[in-house]
């Protein structure tokens, strides 16, 4: 009771620093690494990126003997190596969404905006910290996936491709870049929608529902429109070949970065105008 019955002195702060973009980034890094949900999403992303190509390579190897020449021609070593990217993008997207919607659902956003009332530094910091973490986190798995799947296939002497082969290194690293951009896109969606379920549904709609729906269109329309969808434009980052129905690497990359920039810009516009 003695601690209670006398007035407590609040220790004074020797110096008080101003809010800077770098300090907000450090704060966001602390937030990102201190959540179990984030760590699980990361773990799932890494695991899927490695395990699916390994599984795919093992299955291809064991069934190679019974495959028709047509089927064999359809298999490409890079498609196998990057098979995990198509699935782990969902884990990365969920992570990107949670970085922002987790703050809205728990009320943390009020604390964040009280500390940084200008708000935009929070969005920039979240985007930058998340982008760096997502890229550094996903780069090793895509490399491991490539070499592991190649190692499995090499035991049957099939579907060999060298990392130094033209475009291979670019495509493999492009897989990590693609995942990073998917995460940024999802973060922007999360900041716009401000609700976890709604943001994930929106993301899934854009990346997983709309593309197959395009098949309902007459095929010449489908070919004209589909290549401009975010998922198709982004896919060029990790595709070795580009045909008439897809954009070139440069055009696809630029368009996908544009989509990401657009969602972040809309998020920024809304962030400073809406009540919290």
């Amino acid at each position: 009771m003695s601690a209670v019955s006398q007035a407590q002195q609040i220790p004074r702060l020797s110096h008080t620093g101003r809010v800077t973009q770098l300090r907000v980034a450090r704060s966001e890094w602390t937030k990102l690494r201190s959540l179990r949900s984030t760590l699980w999403s990361m773990f799932a992303g890494v695991l899927l990126t490695i395990l699916l190509p390994v599984l795919f390579a093992a299955l291809t190897s064991s069934h190679w003997g019974s495959m028709s020449p047509h089927e064999r021609a359809d298999r490409h070593p890079l498609d196998i190596a990057l098979a995990g990217v198509n699935v782990s993008q969902l884990a990365i997207a969920v992570l990107g969404v949670l970085v922002i919607t987790g703050e809205y659902s728990t009320g943390m956003i009020r604390a964040s905006f009280t500390a940084v009332p200008k708000r935009l530094p929070v969005l920039w910091a979240k985007t930058a910290v998340f982008a760096v973490v997502a890229f550094l986190l996903m780069l090793p798995p895509v490399l491991i996936a490539f070499f592991a799947s190649q190692a499995i296939l090499s035991r049957h002497h099939i579907l060999q491709i060298s990392f130094s082969h033209s475009g291979v290194a670019r495509s493999v690293i492009g897989g990590a870049v693609y995942l990073m951009l998917v995460g940024i896109f999802a973060l922007g969606i999360g900041a716009i929608v401000r609700n976890t379920a709604g943001a994930i549904a929106t993301f899934a709609g854009i990346f997983f529902v709309i593309p197959p729906l395009m098949n309902i269109l007459p095929s010449n329309w489908n070919h004209a429109v589909s290549k401009y969808l975010p998922s198709e434009a982004g896919r060029q980052l990790f595709s070795l070949t580009h045909d008439a129905n897809s954009l070139s690497l440069g055009a696809g990359a630029r368009l996908f970065v544009g989509y990401c920039a657009l969602t972040i810009a809309v998020a920024a516009f809304l962030l400073v105008r809406r009540d919290t």
Partner: peptide, 13 residues
């Protein structure tokens, strides 16, 4: 602890 630390970082505390 991490909640306070994240808030502290924004002001270099």
């Amino acid at each position: 602890y991490n909640h306070l630390l994240a808030l502290a970082h924004t002001h270099g505390i």
